[in-house]
Nucleic acid binder design. Structure first.
Length: 214
DNA sequence: ATCCCGAGGG
DNA sequence: CCCTCTGGAT
């Protein structure tokens, strides 16, 4: 089985199982998604979705957030990971959006990464989900699942993974592929104990094939 | 004890 | 490259 055949098998499988995969973060505007993704670092989407309704009621726009204090932001997100860092990041992010980007969310990955709290992964999510760009966001799930399947056998870090995946998936497949790999990691290919019994990808999965042959 | 849609700083 | 931030679920 060549690498190309492996990618084709996997695309076919996911296309049928998840024809229209989407993020599980709740949002209604680009601003809301940006906030939600920043909050999602090392935190489950479910927990983020527990705090964002109140957060967006209090801070519905970039302008309102920019006027809020770090302390008030902290109080609204205190139940998720790293509230100290994230409240400072969100506050600084709103300031920079007003000052340097006219209050609009930029579509360029490099510009997005200039924002406090926005790294490569978050920037790629916004570029892909909001602006439909072929940006491959690599989080913990994408990194792990890609490696196990054998899509990125030599990747040593998320950036390696991103480059390899972008090279092999067709451009129009990338936004879906991002969500496919995340959702597969979240509901089947668990970090601790992957549920290979319920997985239809075992015929092409390096992790499964290696572990079952011993 | 380990993991969750990471980012920033040294 | 490494470390720190640091809450809640399993």
């Amino acid at each position: 089985m060549t690498k190309k055949q492996k990618y084709e098998f996997i695309v076919k499988y996911f296309s049928e199982k998840m024809p229209d995969p989407k993020t599980e973060l709740k949002y209604t505007t680009p601003y809301e998604l940006l906030v939600a993704v920043v909050l999602s670092a090392q935190c489950t989407d479910k927990r983020v979705n527990m705090v964002t309704p109140n957060f967006f009621k209090r801070f519905p726009t970039v302008d309102t957030l920019a006027e809020g204090s770090i302390e008030e932001i902290f109080d609204l997100i205190r139940s998720i990971s790293y509230p100290n860092n994230k409240s400072k990041h969100l506050h600084g992010m709103a300031q920079m959006l007003l000052k340097s980007f006219n209050g609009e969310i930029p579509s360029d990955v490099d510009e997005l990464q200039m924002l406090p709290g926005v790294g490569r992964k978050t920037a790629n999510v916004i570029a892909s989900v909001i602006f439909n760009k072929p940006a491959m966001a690599v989080d913990t799930h994408v990194f792990r699942v890609s490696k196990r399947l054998g899509l990125t056998p030599n990747a040593k870090n998320p950036l390696d993974t991103e480059r390899e995946l972008v090279k092999h998936f067709k451009e129009e497949q990338i936004p879906n592929a991002h969500h496919w790999l995340i959702l597969h990691g979240r509901y089947t290919c668990f970090a601790r104990k992957p549920n290979c019994k319920e997985c239809g990808l075992t015929p092409v999965c390096s992790y499964y094939l290696d572990s079952s042959s011993m």
